[in-house]
Design a protein around this nucleic acid. Structure first.
Lengths: 143, 143
DNA sequence: CTTTTTATTGCAAACGATTTGCAATTGCAT
DNA sequence: ATGCAATTGCAAATCGTTTGCAATAAAAAG
């Protein structure tokens, strides 16, 4: 249901091409990102990184996330509730269903909804630059 | 398509019923809200209020917005870009198209999209508690 | 492999939006 | 009018995130 056969992106190569240095902290953070398939926030990444190398600072996590975001390697999501959450930018576009009890994120995509969005914007005289569709829900109890 | 003939809500009556005092600052803020048909943020409300009564504080604006939100009289939206924006909660549910150049907000509603959202959540085993659909766009140039 | 250059780091302080503690004020019921 | 709890303004605190700066460490040069 969620094992994405995503050809794990070679962040290091991308970074090198972007002309930035492959430092120890960055290596650790990149490793965490490639090994992760949830949507961690900066603090979670920081904690996972600290477990590997306690000298890594939260600032560096933020700086690295910003860097990767600008390179287009990751996406930043401002779901409800404080912290921004990140995900690898490998796959195609999708929207999110957030479990309001656990914070779990499920990705989904609806071509039909996207079409309808386009129609609506168009009817209002607009071109969509980007959009945000988030469903906040609770796991159904009885089937 | 979107001209809401909103029967302007009597906030004062609602507040009184909720057992809170009708103070001078609150009167001013309520007046601003009823006279407004855009989606102002706290700072804008504060500035408009200051023009009427310079002694009103930003804290009071925030406190009043929170109060009204808890009463269900207004909705708070966390669109992109810092500040939360508010709108009267009179009409029926709608989503938003935000003009990324001007910040203008256009309300729209699509029964079809809502149905599709339900289908998706349902297929994933979830009940939707609430959702967020925001289109960020730019006014189309050539018709 | 040492030196040089310059990006990157950790830290603490700054940030912007919002909330809060507190003492002074004010609605409003008596 | 009187009394008291609700409300205010202010300043300080909060939370997530960003930033200035001096110290450090990649990678380039020799």
């Amino acid at each position: 249901m969620n094992q994405h056969a995503s050809h794990k992106p070679d962040y290091e190569k991308e970074l090198r091409r972007a002309g930035v240095r492959i430092t120890r902290p960055r290596k650790v953070i990149l490793r965490i990102l490639t090994e992760t398939d949830d949507h961690p926030d900066a603090m979670e990444i920081f904690q996972r990184a600290s477990a590997i190398d306690p000298s890594i600072s939260l600032s560096t996590v933020y700086r690295t996330m910003k860097l990767l975001e600008e390179m287009g390697a990751i996406h930043r999501h401002a779901f409800e509730g404080g912290r921004a959450r990140f995900e690898q930018a490998d796959g195609e576009h999708h929207d999110h269903l957030i479990d309001i009890d656990t914070g779990d994120v499920i990705e989904f995509h609806s071509k039909r909804i996207e079409e309808l969005q386009e129609e609506i914007a168009s009817a209002l005289g607009y071109d969509i630059v980007h959009h945000r569709l988030e469903l906040y829900g609770r796991k159904r109890k009885r089937s």
